[in-house]
Design a protein around this nucleic acid. Sequence first.
DNA 1: GACTTTATTTTAGCGCCTAAAGTAAAACGA
DNA 2: TCGTTTTACTTTAGGCGCTAAAATAAAGTC
Lengths: 410, 410
Amino acid sequence: MAIPSSESSRQDNTLAVIRALRSQGPMARVDLGASNDISSATVTAITTELLGQALVSELPPGMHRDNGRGRPKTLIQLNPDAVFVVCVKLSINEVQIVVGDFVGQVRHSELHSLATLALTQEELCAFLVDKIEALSSQLRDTYSRFAGICLAVQGIVSPHNGTIIWSPALRFRNAPISSRLAAVFGCPVLLENDANCIARSLASQPEYAAYPHMVVIMLGYGIGMSVLIDGQPFIGANGSAAELGHSKYEPGGALCSCGRRGCIEAYVGDYALYREARTMLSLPAGDSAHPSEEQMQALTQLAMRGDPVARQIFGKAGRALGYGIANVMALFNPDLVLITGAGVRGYPAMRSEVEQAIDDALVEELIGLTRVATCPWDRDMTCLGGIAMTLHATDPATLSAPSSLLRLQD
Amino acid sequence: MAIPSSESSRQDNTLAVIRALRSQGPMARVDLGASNDISSATVTAITTELLGQALVSELPPGMHRDNGRGRPKTLIQLNPDAVFVVCVKLSINEVQIVVGDFVGQVRHSELHSLATLALTQEELCAFLVDKIEALSSQLRDTYSRFAGICLAVQGIVSPHNGTIIWSPALRFRNAPISSRLAAVFGCPVLLENDANCIARSLASQPEYAAYPHMVVIMLGYGIGMSVLIDGQPFIGANGSAAELGHSKYEPGGALCSCGRRGCIEAYVGDYALYREARTMLSLPAGDSAHPSEEQMQALTQLAMRGDPVARQIFGKAGRALGYGIANVMALFNPDLVLITGAGVRGYPAMRSEVEQAIDDALVEELIGLTRVATCPWDRDMTCLGGIAMTLHATDPATLSAPSSLLRLQD
DNA sequence: GACTTTATTTTAGCGCCTAAAGTAAAACGA
DNA sequence: TCGTTTTACTTTAGGCGCTAAAATAAAGTC
């Protein structure tokens, strides 16, 4: 697990330069120095090194407006093709594999249908090795180095030993997948919860830069959450923190998919909404325990158009969600609670109840300056976040070593 | 606020040496090197510097058993009298002022009765300045340097600008007390929530060293909590995180002291227990909205002896507390939940209900390896923790400067 | 008393940083 | 047009703080 610690000062500074270039785009040496508190002499040293490794290049002059006197700035940019990383998103019956370049852009994406719940650990491993190997032999021409893999999975994931402790997509438990991939490909493998990937992707957007303590709630079949503390996902002792979906709304309340009662998810999850609705409303046919996007759209439309029964269902969900958010506010005191996920489509129909519930639950002091906002849903955010996290964790020192070049032969 | 950041490497290492000596007692240079990953050459350099500043001294040989061959170790110890810090604990109608030495031991303690709720900000400040000034002129002979003040207060405290945002002990709000004291005494002033002080004090005990993610719940008139993430108190965006007492048990439930309904505190706080009990049991007279220690003892005794009504009251409280702990587990996934506070006296009467409620609320995966334990209550832990935090934050560089010497004359 | 073992100090040298001096490349202005 | 000014980048000289290794110190062992 080559996550760069603060070993040498030079390492830190090199990393800081690369990250600044990634998040802020091409920059001149002076500005790199200023924004990272490094003398420009040091920046020169670092950039010469990076130019030598072809990790960055100088932007040809004249490309950018440089109004003002004095010697014009020479902008440095990351070389997109210097490095590639792979992010694998593992969901129920679906595996998405995405390739990202050194600047964090998605360069390739493929979707595989796969009966994940029927797989053994070996079969999953073999599948992933196969697909990633195929990709990398293809990409070998374009990119110089293969810097890492991110496995974004639903469920509980242990950060320490890189095992999938539990996932709704898999039959088996405590799978040391990440070390097995690391052994095959000889590169670091990040194992991440999918919600944390999404949150990291959102947090890197400039509009959320002012919120270091951000909570992202993902509405969907279940309820996911990621808590960013100073921009870092909070995972707890064993990776099972931030389980908002199974925190409680009412003791002994509605039955949850986990088998317990009164979980927030049992009121707000897609299946919970549909469960309430199907008995009272005429809705598209289908597996009502696992409503499809179309089914949910239909239900949402009803509520949006003012159907009283549908409105009441969403209102009740909103109340449960609001109480859940109130607990999150009381316990985490975030700057911002951001609501997203496929289920945001129905949020307008719950909004007033959510807000009312928060006000009912908490005194002003505990709501404090916390804002609640929504954000449109985009399926690709998971992999974007996974790519960002993998690149963020990439140690420039290992990139220079030839050992990180592709070596799938062994 | 001179909290030492990781400026120079030497600073970091010096701090590490001092902290090791404080937490592990006298040590030889080799061992200081080994336990902090520093070469023993560097340790020599650091200790010579510290010896010069009289912050440490060499233990005379022969004091310690040194069975084995080779040159005997020379143990280095902190000089207790090199530094003193003051911790002020501000509670309703009571101010405790404690002096701690360089090793973290309490060397003096005084208790003042004071109608805190009647004070203006100026009066409180004047009171504190007066008492601390008196103390320090007294202590000037014994100690060399006055390194800092810790203000441990109940309520919400902002870490950023050092203001008391809200405290049940005070009438006024948003008080920039800490900067005012800092200006008068010319030393750093830490403003801390009292629960965090207690938690830090507990966490420093060796028996809890294996639990980096620890949650400490304090039962009493209200319900306090501190969440330690990697040993550091988690305070959230504005210092109001970890408010377990006002997280919800039942929407629309029992009336809480905060004015809202269904808060955990409204079931588990002393006042809530007594409120239930007084109508049904014969208990000592007194202000039943603010039960005294004697009143609570009497109630607890009844429950312990098996009185069915009292048992039921504690059982209901245990259920509420259990659900609260379940939410904490789902959201923070701690290694350990430690229950303490004056109210632990009644915990045995709730224990089985707490455990049952946690099992009812969460599936195994979310309970994970988290343990729940209790810990005897000691009033002095707050100040001990405050002293530890102040010392921990003390920058050795500022200690060497003469500016940190007492200078109350100006 | 020579030898072994362990602790501490001294020495030599390395890596990385910075300030300051030097160089480069523009715009400005007479 | 050409010096002047301004800003960017590079080179140089020197310092800080670390480490490995050598030197020294202070025991026990045989």
